[in-house]
């Protein structure tokens, strides 16, 4: 099979099957990914001297990224069967708690 067809199919599937709320989450994800990539680029270009600052900034983006993906997974209707005990509201509350913990650690680590 050829690659552009594969990509086209994925795009089509995404556009048609994803609900509005999830797309909103995806925009946030894209934003985090861009921020993380920029930080990494800056680290490569300008050196990593306050290494803890780089790590906490980058760790915050990575951590927030995976937490948001976890939220996205748990709120998607297709994954209902995987999480019988996690309602979307519960998922959101968990997300808030985890993000708070994450940011506490990052702020503490950045000094």
């Amino acid at each position: 099979a050829n690659w552009d067809k594969v990509l086209q199919n994925i795009y089509q599937y995404y556009m048609n099957e994803t609900p509005q709320r999830t797309k909103l989450i995806d925009v946030f994800l894209a934003f985090i990914a861009v921020v993380g990539a920029l930080q990494f680029l800056y680290c490569i270009l300008a050196g990593n001297y306050p290494f803890n600052a780089f790590l906490s900034g980058f760790g915050a983006t990575v951590g927030q990224f995976v937490l948001t993906i976890s939220l996205r997974i748990q709120t998607a209707a297709a994954n209902k069967s995987d999480f019988p005990e996690v309602s979307p509201e519960r998922a959101f509350a968990d997300y808030v708690v985890c993000s708070l913990i994450l940011h506490f650690f990052c702020v503490n680590f950045i000094n």
């Binding site: 803890n52 790590l55 760790g59 995976v66 937490l67 993906i69 976890s70 997974i73 990052c106």
Partner: peptide, 26 residues
């Protein structure tokens, strides 16, 4: 996806938590 959620949450938070200890650091 349960494995994804639990593992990534543990790793992202746990690694940052472990780096707070000066002896562990980087």
């Amino acid at each position: 996806s349960r494995l994804y959620v639990s593992y990534t949450t543990w790793y992202a938070l746990g690694t940052l938590a472990s780096m707070q200890i000066p002896f562990v650091g980087f």
